[in-house]
Structures are given as C-alpha cells and as structure tokens.
C-alpha cells in the first residue's frame, strides 16, 4: 500500500471515529456522571474523567427510591407482554402465510395498518375500558395495552421472517405423514426460531421502553414500570439530582447493552426487516 493511500486511510478512520464519538458522547457522559462523586458534579469546567469512581448513587437509588420495584415491574411487563404476543403472533403469522380462507388478504393489510396507528388515538377508550373492567393501576392493564402496538409489530415482523421459509418444506412434511399442526411444530417452528428470537427481543425492548400507556394507565408506585417510575423520581425529588438520574438511566439501559453484546446478530437481522422490506 502506498504512503498516500495509508495516510488517507488513517485520516478516514480518525474522521469516522470522531463522528461516532460525537454520537456516543451523550451515553458516555451519562455513564461518567453516574460514577462521579456528588462534589465533582458541579465543577466548572466539568471533568471528563472522574477523579474518583464511586457507586454511591447506585446504592442510593436502590436504598432510597422504589427503583427496584419499578425494575421488577418492568421485567414482569416485558416478559409477559413478549410471551403473550409471541404466541399469538407466531400462530397468526403462520395462518396468514400458509392457509387460505376468506378475508385473509384484507386481514394482512389491516395488521400493517394497525402497526402504524398512533397510540394516542386508542388511549382514551383504553383508559375507560380499564376502569370499567376494574384493571386500572395494574400491570395486567399494561400488558393488555402493550399488545396494541406490539402484536401488529410482531405479526408483521414474523410474517416477513416466516415468508422466507420455503413452502416445499411444509409440503414435504405433509407428504411424509404429518398433519398441518405437526408440520408446523416439526418443520416450520425450528426454521422460524431465529426470527422468533429477533421478534421477541424487539417486543421486549418495545415493552421495556414504553412510556405513554404507563403514564396514563398506572398511577401507583406498586405498578409503575421504570419509564414513568424514574420520571416520578425526577418530579418528586426536592432538587434534581442528576447523578442519581444518570445512575437510573444506566441501570435502565443495562438490559439493552446485554442484548447488544450477546444478541447483536438477532437485533440487526430483525431491524426494520418487517418495516423496510415490507
């Protein structure tokens, strides 16, 4: 490689990584703030690297706020929403793809339509509904509300994943003596597994990050998930404690980081697969 080419490469890499540094800076700053001692927080000019690393904010978060309750609620919410949605959507996607009955095409269109529907349109009737059936302020009400956006999303994503499984595989299983359900379980499901994992991951992230329904449907600390819970820490505290909030932000992002490190393959595969590819 010539010297000119080499130096151009170095320059490009420097440029590219500066851009990425800028993009990631808010996240780095979040992490740095969360491990700075309180005293260092208001130094002028701010220090990029803390002089001393402390986890006091994390301890305070756990000790003095209902953070763990929120976290527990968020975990329960994310897992149960995902479980419900994946089961319904896998069966539904399979039906939409490989069966024919009247109204099937229209239904597929409808799924895509609901996938684009704004939540604010549904929220008032859902609020009524939850009060009416006595589920207001409960985690179940949120699971039900979360299916409004996660079910169309999961259905659409799974449909595009499962459409890639050749029809001949199911046909072969039928000829080999399987019933349609057996063919689904023996052949389609194993083939769809990577797509199901991707979809589950995305559904979990959606549920984990949801804010609007949680804001409207739940008003007690016992049932609040992390998103509205952390905001209530912000609102109820006497003065805004940024290091505490940054510690909470880091904690909220830990599951995402774990997903990124270990399941990146599934994340990039599923990213927009349903949306952009149609």
């Amino acid at each position: 490689m010539s010297l000119k080419k080499k130096s151009r490469r170095v320059l490009f890499n420097l440029f590219a990584w500066s851009v990425i540094g800028l993009i990631a800076f808010p996240l780095i700053w979040m992490l740095v703030t969360s491990i700075k001692p309180q005293s260092e927080l208001f130094l002028i000019p701010p220090t990029l690297l803390p002089s001393e690393i402390t986890f006091e904010h994390y301890w305070r978060l756990i000790d003095e706020t209902p953070f763990l309750t929120y976290m527990k609620n968020s975990i329960i919410l994310a897992l149960s929403t995902t479980a419900v949605v994946i089961v319904i959507a896998t069966l539904g996607a399979h039906s939409l793809l490989r069966f024919s009955y009247p109204g099937r095409e229209r239904l597929a269109q409808l799924v895509l339509f609901t996938y684009l529907l704004p939540s604010v349109v549904l929220i008032i009737p859902l609020y009524f509904l939850m009060i009416w059936i006595g589920l207001a302020n409960s985690l179940i009400s949120l699971v039900i509300a979360y299916t409004t956006f996660s079910l169309p999303y999961a259905l659409w994503l799974l449909r595009s994943f499962m459409a890639a499984i050749p029809d001949d595989l199911e046909s072969a299983a039928l000829v080999d003596g399987a019933t349609r359900m057996e063919a689904f379980i023996d052949v389609i499901l194993p083939q769809a597994l990577p797509g199901i994992i991707s979809t589950a991951l995305f559904t979990m992230i959606l549920a984990w990050n949801e804010y609007l329904y949680a804001l409207v449907l739940v008003n007690t600390d016992e049932s609040r998930p992390l998103t509205t819970g952390v905001m209530s820490i912000l609102i109820t505290s006497f003065n805004i404690e940024w290091s505490l909030l940054m510690a909470a932000s880091v904690m909220m992002s830990v599951p995402l980081i774990v997903a990124f490190v270990f399941l990146q393959k599934y994340l990039t595969r599923g990213f927009g697969a349903g949306a952009v590819k149609g």
Binding site: L169, D186, Q191
Partner: peptide
C-alpha cells in the same frame, strides 16, 4: 404416496 421435490425440501435442522 411419496414425493421428491424439485428443491429436495430436506429439513435443514
């Protein structure tokens, strides 16, 4: 009956 498919349709897993 048994059938052999053009794509073979072997179960990949």
């Amino acid at each position: 009956i048994a059938m052999v498919f053009q794509t073979y349709a072997l179960y990949p897993h």
